[in-house]
Amino acid sequence: AVSDRLIGRKGVVMEAISPQNSALVKVDGETWRATSGTVLDVGEEVSVKAIEGVKLVVEKLE
């Protein structure tokens, strides 16, 4: 799938994300809905860990 190429890519949080709420991230110039197990604020850099349906699963870039 096209989205599989995004695993391992870096992105930027466009809307705050919490474990209860998905929000938008920008990866390679494209906007995607994403979820995370932690709270992520706007502007934080993230890494794509997986794809669940049409959502990216991201975590904060260390």
Rank of each mutant, 00 (worst) to 15 (best):
V25S: 01
D4H: 13
G43V: 00
Q20G: 15
G29Y: 03
V25A: 01
K60R: 12
A23W: 15
T38S: 12
A1R: 09
T35I: 14
T38L: 07
S47M: 15
V27W: 01
A23D: 02
V46T: 01
L40W: 02
G43L: 04
A23K: 02
D28A: 07
K60W: 03
S22G: 12
R5L: 08
R9V: 07
V58T: 00
G11Q: 02
E59P: 00
A1F: 12
E52T: 07
S18V: 07
V42A: 07
L40N: 00
E62A: 12
V39W: 14
P19H: 11
V46C: 03
M14P: 01
L56F: 03
R33M: 15
E45L: 14
S3K: 10
V58C: 05
W32L: 05
V48D: 03
E52V: 11
E59R: 02
S3C: 12
R33N: 11
K60Y: 04
A50H: 06
V27C: 03
K60G: 04
A1P: 11
T31V: 14
V12A: 04
E44T: 12
V54F: 14
V39H: 14
V54L: 14
S22H: 12
P19E: 13
D4N: 11
V54H: 14
G8S: 02
D41A: 14
G11D: 05
L40P: 02
G29N: 07
M14N: 02
L6Y: 05
T38D: 14
S18K: 08
V57Q: 05
R33Y: 15
G53N: 05
L40G: 00
I7D: 04
E15M: 10
N21C: 13
E59Y: 05
V57C: 06
L6K: 02
D28P: 00
R9T: 07
S3R: 10
V57E: 04
N21R: 11
E62R: 09
I51A: 03
V2H: 10
M14C: 09
S3H: 11
E62Y: 12
R5H: 10
V13W: 02
S3D: 09
V27R: 00
E62S: 12
S36V: 04
V2K: 10
L40I: 09
A16S: 10
S36F: 05
N21D: 10
E30D: 07
A50G: 11
A23E: 03
W32R: 03
R9C: 13
A1M: 12
D4R: 08
S47W: 15
L6M: 07
R5T: 08
Q20H: 12
G8L: 01
P19A: 12
K26Y: 13
E15T: 10
K26H: 08
A23H: 07
V57D: 02
S3Y: 12
I17L: 13
E30W: 07
V13F: 00
V39E: 11
I51C: 04
W32I: 04
E52N: 11
K10V: 13
S36G: 05
R9L: 14
A34E: 03
A34F: 06
K55W: 15
V58M: 00
D28K: 00
T38F: 09
E44P: 01
D41E: 14
L40D: 02
S47F: 15
V58N: 00
L56H: 03
V57L: 08
N21Q: 11
S3F: 11
S47V: 15
S47R: 15
V39C: 13
S36W: 04
G29R: 04
L6Q: 02
E52W: 11
E62L: 11
E15F: 08
K10N: 09
V42Q: 05
A16N: 08
T35R: 05
V48W: 00
E30P: 00
R5N: 09
K55V: 15
M14S: 05
N21A: 10
K26R: 12
V39D: 10
E15A: 12
K26W: 14
V39S: 12
V12G: 01
E30K: 11
G29F: 03
R9M: 15
V48I: 10
V13E: 01
A34P: 02
Q20W: 13
A16Y: 13
T31K: 05
V58D: 00
A1L: 12
T38E: 13
I17Q: 14
A50M: 06
S36E: 04
G53A: 04
V12S: 03
E15H: 08
V27E: 03
V25P: 02
L6T: 04
T38Q: 14
A16L: 14
M14I: 14
V13A: 04
K49D: 03
G11W: 00
G43P: 01
K60H: 06
T35C: 13
R5K: 11
Q20F: 13
W32G: 01
V58W: 00
V54C: 15
E30L: 09
D41L: 14
A23C: 14
G11P: 06
V54N: 15
S18I: 06
K10M: 06
L61K: 05
R5A: 10
L56I: 08
M14Y: 05
G53M: 02
L61I: 12
A34D: 02
G11Y: 00
G37D: 15
T31W: 12
N21V: 09
V12M: 06
P19L: 10
G8H: 04
L24Y: 09
E45F: 13
I17D: 13
A16P: 10
S18W: 10
V39Y: 14
V42F: 04
I7A: 04
V2C: 13
V13C: 06
W32A: 02
E59V: 12
T35W: 09
E59A: 08
I7Q: 02
I51M: 06
E59N: 05
R9S: 08
V46G: 01
G37W: 13
V12P: 02
S36I: 04
L6S: 02
D28H: 04
V39P: 14
G8E: 03
K49W: 05
K26L: 14
S3P: 13
A23I: 15
I51F: 06
S36M: 05
L24N: 05
S3Q: 09
I17S: 15
Q20A: 11
V39K: 13
K49P: 02
G37N: 14
P19C: 13
V46D: 01
V13D: 00
V12C: 10
E59Q: 08
L56M: 05
S47K: 13
V2P: 15
L61Y: 10
L56W: 00
V39M: 11
I7S: 03
E45V: 13
S47Y: 15
E30M: 10
A23F: 15
V46S: 02
T35F: 08
G29V: 01
K55L: 15
V39T: 12
K55F: 15
M14R: 00
I17R: 12
V27F: 03
L6A: 01
R5I: 07
